[in-house]
């Protein structure tokens, strides 16, 4: 085995992840190669330091706070959000919104067009024939 290959396996060797024949092969290489042996020692020392970072205790108060949080939880409040988060309802919901936007947008577009044509018709009426007009003619007041 080459040094490069061995160095990739050193962590697993230290954790004793390999089966016996592999462990033996790595051990033999380490006994022959001072560089790999030094690297192995360094990793072991690093792990020793990392082991100093011990566990912290979990205070009992955390359990009581969690119990309180669970007790206060009202599932119906989240139900709609949870349902929407599921893939199928979410897609259906998105599809409905898209369809609504399309229908709404198209209908608005048609309406605008109608107004445009209507206004053109009215103006053409006014300018074409002044006698037929939709604009009310001003009333002339006569003094009594």
């Amino acid at each position: 085995m080459e040094c490069k290959e061995i160095r990739n396996y050193l962590v697993d060797y230290i954790f004793e992840e390999f089966k016996k024949p592999w462990m033996k092969k790595v051990r033999e290489h380490l006994s022959r190669c001072p560089n790999c042996s030094k690297e192995s020692q360094d990793i072991r020392k690093t792990f020793k330091v990392m082991n100093r970072y011990g566990e912290v205790q979990v205070p009992e108060v955390l359990y009581h706070r969690l119990r309180q949080k669970v007790t206060e939880f009202k599932p119906h409040e989240l139900k709609i959000i949870q349902v929407l988060r599921r893939p199928v309802p979410a897609y259906v919901f998105a599809a409905i919104i898209v369809i609504f936007c399309l229908v709404f947008g198209i209908s608005r577009g048609i309406r605008k067009e109608e107004i445009f044509y209507e206004s053109r018709t009215i103006s053409s009426y006014i300018f074409a024939d002044t006698s037929i007009s939709f604009i009310p003619s001003p009333t002339v007041r006569t003094s009594p």
């Binding site: 970072y53 566990e55 912290v56 205790q57 979990v58 955390l62 359990y63 706070r65 969690l66 949080k69 669970v70 939880f73």
Partner: peptide
Amino acid sequence: SKSLFNYIYRMTGDYELSEDIFHETFFRML
């Protein structure tokens, strides 16, 4: 609780934040 809290604590390095994430983890479990 112990292993999970320590995992979160080592991930975040912040005790108060670990408490929040720890609570949320159990809460989501339920």
